[in-house]
Design a protein around this nucleic acid. Structure first.
Lengths: 312, 312
DNA sequence: TAAAAACTATCAATAAAACCTATAGTGAAA
DNA sequence: TTTCACTATAGGTTTTATTGATAGTTTTTA
């Protein structure tokens, strides 16, 4: 049994296809086939059920793959240990960010981070929460920024900040005249929302569970951005909720439509998440420190009270 | 980096000697030297400080060795998973047993165990607690039977039984006339004890901390067996304490000298211990079940009350 | 239903590696 | 100084991993 063989197994398990797995592993298909056969012979089991299309894992194959991931992770940690000892923060680092955080947060910390850690080769990808979880589990992402809590078994979460929601109303809206909004004021049926990852914090309302107030029959939000929501709202289709950081760069003319909430403000929890194996933890910590410091600056400057997290 | 290279590193770390490590790894010394050099080159660090004699680990080398052990353990678990899935209980299993448990316990469970699990190739070795811990950590033992609690970070303990101590007096002894002993009756200075692993249970008296009442100046117990203690006691050198199971096969003529304790009886905790990585856990569980069932039989048959453990 | 496409297994050849024997080098002990 | 105990290096051999070509199989397409 070799680490390479285990990596091949992981590749096939992921792609359910020997040919593709071979490409991703930068070897030819026969190489991969033979190495996996060798491993199967050595363990005297079948890892893959090749009769099914696409290829499936056998019952024991699933367990083997889980364990193979452990071994590969542990072997990867070797280089981490060396880097940590040398105080070296560098190498490739793949970060996923959910769409509703990407445009506001990324510009805030990116420059600072690459200046402070020039040897880190940061690869950032905009991904849905679902894809992020999958790729973290497969080891194709080193960390990600997403709305939490997610409560996935293999994923650890470190809160970066709580981002209050701000109401956006228009002149014709029933709440336009209010100076501050209360949670009770909201009517779930007249709020425009994006589909993904907008959860109110525990103890308030969980909007994730009643995802879209715009019924699919009427129309659908394609690549839902908050810009779109603001425009829809401007068309008097209802009010909307914007994460605080987004309100910092909307048009001056639209700022009059913003309505903050009374405390306790509804907020979303935004966290840095990563696999529980804690590979590349030095870079994750570095990233976390940079982000937390720039966000702290951004939010205290604008005098917004951050509500402390509710412990579960 | 290969698993083999990591195994070589572990061997050298253990033996502090390339030549010996090579022998133990069943390769020649140059093979081992070159593979370790390759790994050091790949990681761009020195794992060993070859200038010191015997060879020492560098600062980072210690961390590398710890992690190497993780990787090797995780890869070893692969076969475990296969065995478990197949319901196969077999293969080599190395068990350590402390001297004061060996002669009474081994005959009780060995036959039953090898009959029930004929495919397990059991290798049993009598070892001191200290050696047991070391070998468990190095992966040279799969499990061991020892007096607990030990409270070692990397070692897990599963209690097998509580074995009461029984007093052994002789006619001239001040306690000979008593039918049942009390703990308060004991005078630490007139009890003959072995050096190793005889601990009274938590909450009673810990005899480990006052190891030998026979001063080293006078004489020393070589390979201390309870037979020796009984003989010394018969010479009127004092009373002694015997673990309950030992009292089952002393001479008929000597049984009149036994004095049980009043409840709560002082007892030693005897456990099956193993590395926290839980390799070969199926065999460990099998062994535990066999031992617990035979011990339960032995002790209930003789109508001895087992004191329930004190929770910490 | 035949042809094409997509995919995996097998084979023989080659490149890479792991390993060996022999020996040189090195520091400690005699 | 010599010996001893050990590790490193060199060159050759064996083993293993990988490849390109191709056969076999199933699914998709025409």
């Amino acid at each position: 049994m070799t680490i390479t063989q285990l990596q091949y197994v992981l590749a096939v398990a992921e792609h359910q296809n020997f040919t593709l797995a071979a490409q991703k592993s930068f070897v030819t298909q026969p190489t991969l086939s033979m190495q996996i056969q060798k491993l199967e012979d050595e363990l005297e089991i079948q890892i893959f059920d090749r009769s099914k299309k696409p290829i499936q894992l056998t019952e024991i194959g699933k367990k083997i793959v889980d364990q193979a991931r452990n071994v590969v992770n542990e072997s990867g940690r070797m280089q981490d240990i060396v880097d940590q000892q040398k105080g070296f923060i560098g190498g490739e680092f793949k970060l996923g960010i959910i769409p509703t955080v990407m445009p506001t947060l990324l510009p805030m910390f990116l420059k600072t981070f690459i200046k402070k850690y020039p040897k880190v080769n940061l690869k950032i990808e905009e991904l849905s929460t679902e894809n992020i979880i999958q790729r973290l589990n497969e080891g194709h992402l080193d960390a990600a920024i997403a709305a939490t809590p997610l409560e996935h078994d293999h994923i650890k979460e470190r809160v970066l900040y709580y981002e209050p929601f701000v109401g956006y109303t228009t002149e014709t809206h029933r709440l336009y005249e209010k100076k501050e909004l209360k949670i009770e004021d909201l009517d779930i049926d007249d709020i425009l929302l994006l589909e993904d990852g907008h959860c109110f914090r525990d103890g308030v309302i969980n909007l994730c569970k009643t995802p879209k107030s715009i019924e699919e029959d009427h129309f659908q939000l394609e690549s839902g951005s908050f810009e779109t929501l603001i425009k829809l709202s401007n068309e008097n289709l209802g009010m909307t909720l914007l994460p605080y950081l987004h309100t910092l760069d909307i048009k001056e003319s639209e700022k009059k439509n913003l309505r903050h909430f009374e405390a306790p403000r509804p907020a979303r929890e935004v966290s840095l998440i990563f696999h529980k194996s804690e590979l590349k933890m030095q870079i994750i910590e570095a990233l976390r420190n940079v982000i937390m410091s720039v966000v702290r600056g951004a939010i205290t400057f604008h005098n917004v009270e951050i509500i402390s997290p509710v412990s579960k």
